[in-house]
Simulated scan of single mutants.
Amino acid sequence: MSEAPAAPRPGSADATTARPVDQLDLLLTPPTPRSGWRVPAARAWAMCLVELQKLRHDRTELYTRAVQPALWLLIFGETFTRIHAIPTPGVPYLDYLAPGIIAQSAMFIAIFYGIMIIWERDAGVLTKLLVTPTPRAALITGKAFAAGVKSVIQAVVVVVLAAILGVSLTWNPLKLLGVVVAVILGSAFFSCLSMSIAGIVLTRDRLMGIGQAITMPLFFASNALYPVAVMPGWLQVLSRINPLSYEVDALRGLLLGTHAHLLLDFGVLLVAALAGITAASSLLGRLAR
Rank of each mutant, 00 (worst) to 15 (best):
V180M: 00
Q23V: 15
Y226L: 11
L284N: 06
A213Q: 12
K54H: 14
A280Y: 04
T132G: 04
V156W: 00
P133T: 00
A15K: 07
E3A: 13
S191W: 03
I164N: 03
R121D: 06
A221G: 10
S35W: 12
L24T: 04
F266P: 02
R136I: 02
L126I: 11
G11Y: 10
V201A: 15
R82P: 04
Y113A: 14
R252I: 12
I197V: 15
A123R: 08
A250G: 06
K150T: 13
L129D: 07
T127N: 15
P8D: 14
V149K: 00
V183I: 13
A7T: 15
F80N: 05
L256H: 03
V67L: 15
L264H: 07
D22N: 10
P40K: 07
I102K: 00
H84N: 12
F190Y: 14
G257T: 00
T60V: 04
F112R: 09
A46M: 06
D265W: 00
P30F: 02
C48N: 03
S168D: 13
R121A: 03
L262F: 00
D22A: 14
P243T: 01
I86S: 02
P217F: 06
L283Q: 06
Y63M: 05
I86G: 05
G267E: 05
P33F: 03
N223A: 10
I86M: 05
A188R: 05
I115T: 13
V230T: 15
S281T: 13
L71S: 05
A66P: 04
E51F: 01
P33N: 04
C48H: 05
F220Q: 11
T203H: 15
V156Q: 01
S222F: 07
P33K: 09
A46I: 03
